[in-house]
């Protein structure tokens, strides 16, 4: 089993962090994983994206060009990657930032107003984790029980006060009934 995950949005939305969290979850599940960010000027306010692969076998190319899971956190990302998603894949859309619907009929589309949920719950900046919580619920690619372990790995020591907020955001997404 291999999951090719592409997370895409604006720089500053925590795209790379979300990817890192997923990669650590995979590692803690003894999967083969890779995490590849876009880097350079495009990150500084432009689009950012991140390829994450979780696999039971050795990862070949770390570049996700045909995702089976796409997380789109802005309209340009959905426009750019919707057609690259494999048939039968899953597309997660932050519906508070993207009003458009997924046009493809051969993929499963999931909508969650993550950015609005984040600001309504004093979790500004954590729409990324709300998206991930929802993704874990809908895909089951990693067990939700283990989120604490991966969070402890990806939240730096000097920011441990943010651990609880990240967890709240993940739970909010996980429990979202859309």
């Amino acid at each position: 089993m291999t999951n090719q995950i592409l997370i895409a949005g604006f720089g500053g939305q925590g795209i790379l962090f979300a990817g890192k969290f997923l990669a650590y979850e995979g590692l803690l599940e003894d999967k083969e994983v890779s995490w590849l960010p876009s880097y350079g000027p495009e990150m500084r306010g432009g689009t950012a994206n991140c390829s994450v692969i979780l696999s039971d076998t050795k990862v070949g190319s770390p570049i996700v060009s045909e995702p089976d899971i796409l997380i789109a956190m802005n309209l340009p990302s959905l426009d750019k990657y919707e057609n690259d998603t494999v048939a039968g894949g899953k597309i997660f859309v932050d519906s508070s930032l993207i009003s458009k619907k997924v046009a493809r009929t051969d993929v499963d589309a999931y909508y969650i107003p993550a950015t609005a949920m984040a600001s309504d719950n004093n979790l500004t900046g954590l729409a990324n984790m709300i998206m991930l919580g929802y993704l874990i619920k809908k895909t089951g690619i990693i067990p939700f029980e283990n989120i604490d372990r991966a969070l402890a790995k990806v939240v730096p020591a000097r920011k441990q006060d943010l651990l609880g907020l990240n967890k709240t955001a993940l739970e909010l997404g996980y429990n979202y009934e859309g």
């Binding site: 890192k20 994983v33 890779s34 995490w35 590849l36 960010p37 880097y39 770390p62 570049i63």
Partner: peptide, 10 residues
């Protein structure tokens, strides 16, 4: 190369 430098793996 840039990929090897920037990517994360276990």
């Amino acid at each position: 190369d840039g990929t090897m430098g920037q990517m994360m793996e276990p």
